[in-house]
Structures are given as structure tokens and as C-alpha cells.
């Protein structure tokens, strides 16, 4: 937690923590919540949302007005975000953990590919661990990127024919070779 995230004023509005039965109001409420979640996750570089755990975090529990979002309401919000491609359930149909895409896998894929170009490491084999946790990626946006998101974006690159993966002994040992095609 480097610097504190500034919540919008609606975060202090008590009805914001209650499921609104009116359709239009609910849609607006969901839109605002997903916007706040995305910005909060981007701000803190978070990727995973454990629902029951995060209900105690400052994001969903406003101690100032003593309001807390309910689990089922949060699930509905995440459901809505999944529909719009801003999130994904980690292991559906269980709705306990979600991955928040404050940047979509496609966007991550282009970022990684660009980095490969700039670093001049085309046609050499890298491990997945190196990309996410290696010294060379220190300070880059996808440093400490979530394993699942990273794999997804690598898959996209493979499908495009830009890269190739090699099976390793463990998840971190998977090798990637970039062909240097943009």
C-alpha cells in the first residue's frame, strides 16, 4: 500500500452499499462499483479479488459511515463485470475468487511483445518466471503480473503466431520463444 487511493464521494453514500431493486438505479450502481474496483486495483496493482476476504477491505467496507457491501451484492457486481469482459471468475461455477482485468489480456500481450522488441531478446527462450519476476522486467507494468493473466496473454501471442511455448517441469518453468514479429 504505497499511497492511499482516493475514493469518489459516492463511496460515502449509504445507499451505495445496498442492492437497489430499481433496474436503472441498479445498472448505474453496478457501473459505478466496477469503475471504482478497476481504478482501485489499477492503483494498487492488484489482480485477484477474494470476495469474502475483500469485503473487509477499505474498498467494500466504509468504516466512516459504517456500511459494508453484502457478499451476494458483490457477486452480482462481479457477474456484471464478467459479462462486460472486465473480470473473470477464477474457477467457475464457484464464485469465490475473481480476476480483475483492469487491463485486458490482449493489452498485456502487446505490452509484453513490445518489451521483447525493445529489449532485443527475440528468438531467445525466456521462462514465464523471468517475464513476471525477472530482474530485467523490474519497474515495468507487467512485472509481478498474475500467473493466470500472463498465461492468457502468452496464449494470445501463440495463437497470433508471434511466440511459441515449451512445456517445462512446473508452471514457472514454461519457456517462451518470441519470433520478433509484431
Amino acid at each position: 500500500m504505497s499511497n492511499a487511493f482516493v475514493f469518489p464521494s459516492i463511496h460515502d453514500f449509504p445507499p451505495f452499499y445496498t442492492f437497489q431493486p430499481t433496474q436503472t438505479t441498479w445498472q448505474n450502481q453496478v457501473a459505478l462499483w466496477s469503475e471504482i474496483i478497476l481504478s482501485y486495483y489499477r492503483h494498487h496493482k492488484l489482480y485477484r479479488l477474494e470476495l469474502s476476504e475483500s469485503l473487509n477491505s477499505e474498498l467494500f467496507h466504509n468504516k466512516g459511515i459504517n456500511r459494508r457491501l453484502k457478499l451476494d451484492t458483490l457477486q452480482m457486481i462481479i457477474d456484471e463485470m464478467v459479462k462486460q469482459g472486465m473480470a473473470e471468475w477464477d474457477s467457475p461455477p464457484k464464485k469465490t475468487t475473481a480476476i480483475i482485468y483492469w487491463r485486458k489480456p490482449e493489452e498485456w500481450a502487446t505490452l509484453i511483445n513490445n518489451w521483447v522488441f525493445e529489449a532485443g531478446i527475440t528468438n531467445s527462450i525466456l521462462t514465464v518466471y523471468e517475464i513476471a519476476h525477472g530482474d530485467t522486467t523490474e519497474g515495468l507494468e507487467f512485472h509481478k503480473l498474475d500467473q493466470i493473466i500472463l498465461m492468457k496473454s502468452l496464449d494470445i501471442l501463440v495463437k497470433k503466431g508471434v511466440a511459441q511455448t515449451f512445456q517445462g517441469t512446473s508452471a514457472d518453468d514454461i519457456g517462451v520463444k518470441f519470433f520478433g514479429i509484431n
Binding site: I10, P14, P15, Y17, T18, Q20, N28, N66, R67
Partner: peptide, 18 residues
């Protein structure tokens, strides 16, 4: 208007959400 459900019951607020 929009509602706020808490242990004190349901209160109605001006619909700022919209």
C-alpha cells in the same frame, strides 16, 4: 430515490447514484 438497508431499517435517499 434509492434505499439504504441497515440494521436500523430501510431509509430512502435522493438518488445520487443515477
Amino acid at each position: 430515490i434509492c434505499r439504504d438497508e441497515s440494521i436500523e431499517g430501510i431509509r430512502y435517499y435522493d438518488n445520487l447514484i443515477n
